[in-house]
Design a protein around this nucleic acid. Sequence first.
DNA 1: TTGTAGGCGTTATCAC
DNA 2: GTGATAACGCCTACAA
Lengths: 348, 348
Amino acid sequence: MTGPRIVRMTAPTLRDVAQLAGVHPATASRALNPQTRPLVNADTARKVLRAAESIGYQPNPIARSLKTARSSTVGLVIPDLTNPLFPPIVRGIEDVLTPAGYNAWIVNTDNDPDREETQVESLRSRQVEGLIVATAKREHPLLVRLHRQGIKMVLVNRRVDGLELPSVTADDDAGVALAVSHLAALGHTRIAHLAGPQDTSTGVSRARAFRHAMHDHRLADDPALTVECGYWSETAGAAALRSLLDSGASFTAVVAGNDLIALGCYDVFAERGIACPEEMSVVGFNEMPFLDKMRPPLTTVAIPHYEIGGEAARLLLDTLDEPERHPRSVLLAPSLVVRASTGPPRSA
Amino acid sequence: MTGPRIVRMTAPTLRDVAQLAGVHPATASRALNPQTRPLVNADTARKVLRAAESIGYQPNPIARSLKTARSSTVGLVIPDLTNPLFPPIVRGIEDVLTPAGYNAWIVNTDNDPDREETQVESLRSRQVEGLIVATAKREHPLLVRLHRQGIKMVLVNRRVDGLELPSVTADDDAGVALAVSHLAALGHTRIAHLAGPQDTSTGVSRARAFRHAMHDHRLADDPALTVECGYWSETAGAAALRSLLDSGASFTAVVAGNDLIALGCYDVFAERGIACPEEMSVVGFNEMPFLDKMRPPLTTVAIPHYEIGGEAARLLLDTLDEPERHPRSVLLAPSLVVRASTGPPRSA
DNA sequence: TTGTAGGCGTTATCAC
DNA sequence: GTGATAACGCCTACAA
């Protein structure tokens, strides 16, 4: 027979635990925290833990944050969650942070510096212990300032000129080399590059890698065959390809700065009745989801998104643990996924 | 000539503002809070605001939360961010919450009830003021319990049996009717349905809508032509279609529970050399990104994801403002996007 | 209209 | 090893 159950509306606090265990709240606090548990008598600790268990005590992270000025939380600054590149990175980050007892706050910036500043401010006011930043531009005053202020940061996919920050990126050199080798092996000699925005390190490094790769294959690196896209987007990719075609330049293959830019090419192919890969081959970069079901399935350079996220989280945790450690950067190896958007040039 | 700048390392607090303005912290607090500002002399208020501005004072949300047991934060419970359905919904939510002064905490559950419970617990301990839940199953003990405990919630895309909660969903009836009408108009009479999981309200309502629509078109609603997929995924869709084909049933078109299930059909078409749409038409549901570039471009029922998110956020804000208000639910109108995965049956 | 005082739940620093 | 006390930054009765 069960007696009347008193149900309290507010969550149990440390005092409740202490009272139930017959100890002072300070002792209960020490017993509950693995760090300080050695300071307290083993029996007492057991008693406290049992009491906590019995009433379902959960420490209040807000009170803890207020006291410790820490939060077990890190901020994730990304341009736009709807870009399919980011969700797997986010998952990789979370899957490393969670077991380590950390949580991630995700914010979107829409590539708007003002919005970025507000969002970062809001993260800071929530006492995030560090930032994982995917929005870095080569010139990035905000990040420079944050770094000066001692904010712990890790960059993903991008880097900032002159800023020694830990970063995790794909090996762009190797990736672009794979793409160019593949096209060269198919017999292409006139290859164009639709470069990503040159205010991002990734845009620059892939463009540089493209020049080097062309040179390595003893192919003409015609400046007229490289066009910069204003954004990492389909529309920007389409616009860039249109301008290249309109310029009258002759080429039989395109190395796109990323998959979205490559997909923008598909739109232009449809507009102008260009057959891919018969008349024009395209290689993307990133291996975003569902490329295998595209028309045609897109050949692309695959990078390990999930691992990029995981590595970034690990680097940040390292930085939090050992603030003085010299910044490491991680380069992850890409691989080429050959599909049907590339083939031999028509007049090979 | 600029004098020496004193840089304080810790963020300015209310005391700093008060001191600078020459008032008591309580007065500063009242002046800073629009709610209580009328209580304080207009001149004093101005002085305080100016002081706050000058030292870049930002209230500490953690201290505020501890005091008020509120957080201006809502939790977003989704199964998996890498499902392309969710990012636009998340954006819609954020774009409504942000102007209202709220932030969103996103958590993934991976459809794992244990993980869901932990994540929700962590949200609650952070004093989130409400939850937007995209993981609802028809039977969902956790949500029932949270509702009993008075947690404010809004459901997106899904509903829970017997639980009167505000929800935002696409009008599944209308959507499926559009799909079936389209196929019927093309001349299809034997139409199959690859239903979503029947433990989700969406899976059930689309399956029911399918039966109704077939009936409305005086087409045979053969139970053998409906197969349930275990998950809303490509692999589950592929498996379901394989089993249907292997059963020897005859049909010329498929209404898929969602786009992923439809894309799973593409895999089977490739495996078995089935031409789409010549031998088999397929309609998806959701209009996820990049369907226009698929092979073949997928005909689908478009639902306004971004608006779904926005509506959900509005419903939650309403609930927070007026807790006693009767739960409303919002049904958003879908539209049909006809592409190349549907055509007349071969032997029409 | 403004100031005073107390406390939200936790932890760090003292004593004992 | 444990208890007392104060403080993190803010808000809000209550008093003046």
